[in-house]
Amino acid sequence: MADPPTTIAHRGFAGHFPENTVAAVRGAADCGADVVEVDVMPTGDGDVVVFHDNHLGDTDESRGVTDCEGLVWDRPTDVVTGARVLGTDQRVPTLADVVAARPSDVGLNVELKNPGTTAIRPFEALSGQDRVAARERWTPFVERVLSMADECETEVLFSSFCEGALAAVRARRPNARLAALFGRRDWKAGATVARRYDVDALHVPLAQVDHPELVDLTAALGTAVNVWTVRDWQDARRALAAGADGIIDDYPDLHRYTTG
């Protein structure tokens, strides 16, 4: 019998719990997640918080996740961490809060979402001075993230769509575990970044799980393939049929409904 896939709780099973909160982390662990995935960015005071959208409120591409307004990295920490998430009593946590809440037998995947600027150049493989500038842009924030991740009893997996983020982690922690996040359209950039940093995992969108170059890339790098975002049993079936090692899912136990 094949080994079950690694279950990576996307934002702490975002379809089941208020995303990226302490309750989501604890709930995902209780539901049997192998790994909990969270997003991080800085507040205006430079503290690392667990949040996905750029804005606290409903504006631009942000979804109105909290009852507050403003660009996360422009707002003071007490405002950000005082914001209620999705109409619940849960507040936006710091990364330190999440690290403390996570059981030691559950892994942590920290997605480096933003260092506090819109100039992050996601989905690109950079070259020359552009790569150096991107790495330096991410470095101060990455250093704060790494200091908090050091409190984990288990090794943390760092992932990002941004080469600058992965470059900054690799420069500061040569042995850190990295995952390259692939965009939905441009396979080439993700593959280039994955090779460049000898990553430990490929985080591939469901739409790209059948890409013909995936088998060759994983064989060359010896990496795991984790598929995002799995939202129902049909997504899970497709991902596992394609040979995924893990599923980054919004709901618990989806891998149980993929046979027959």
Score class of each variant (00 low, 15 high):
T218P: 10
G222A: 01
W233C: 13
T118H: 15
V142Y: 01
L240N: 07
H55A: 15
T258N: 08
F141H: 02
V79K: 05
C152H: 06
E155R: 13
W187H: 07
P205I: 00
L112D: 06
I120Q: 02
Q234L: 14
R91F: 13
G57A: 04
R173I: 03
T259D: 13
F123H: 15
R91S: 11
T218Y: 14
P205C: 01
C31N: 10
E136H: 07
A28E: 08
R256F: 08
R231H: 12
T21A: 09
K188E: 13
H55Q: 14
G57Y: 05
R231I: 11
N114H: 02
T223R: 05
R11A: 08
P18F: 08
P205N: 01
V49T: 04
R131A: 15
E163Q: 01
P18E: 08
M1Q: 12
L217E: 04
R91N: 12
V48H: 06
A14F: 08
D34S: 11
D216C: 08
A236M: 01
S127I: 14
G260Q: 09
D58A: 15
R173K: 07
G44L: 03
D186S: 10
T259K: 10
A167P: 07
V132A: 14
G15I: 02
T77L: 11
W73F: 08
P4R: 10
A119L: 11
A244F: 03
R11Y: 04
G87K: 04
T6V: 14
A180D: 02
V99K: 00
S159I: 01
V65T: 12
G107E: 00
V25E: 03
S127E: 15
N109D: 14
A100E: 14
K188D: 13
G260V: 09
A134K: 04
P140A: 07
A219L: 13
V142R: 00
T118W: 15
S159D: 00
V85P: 09
H203N: 11
G82W: 00
V204A: 08
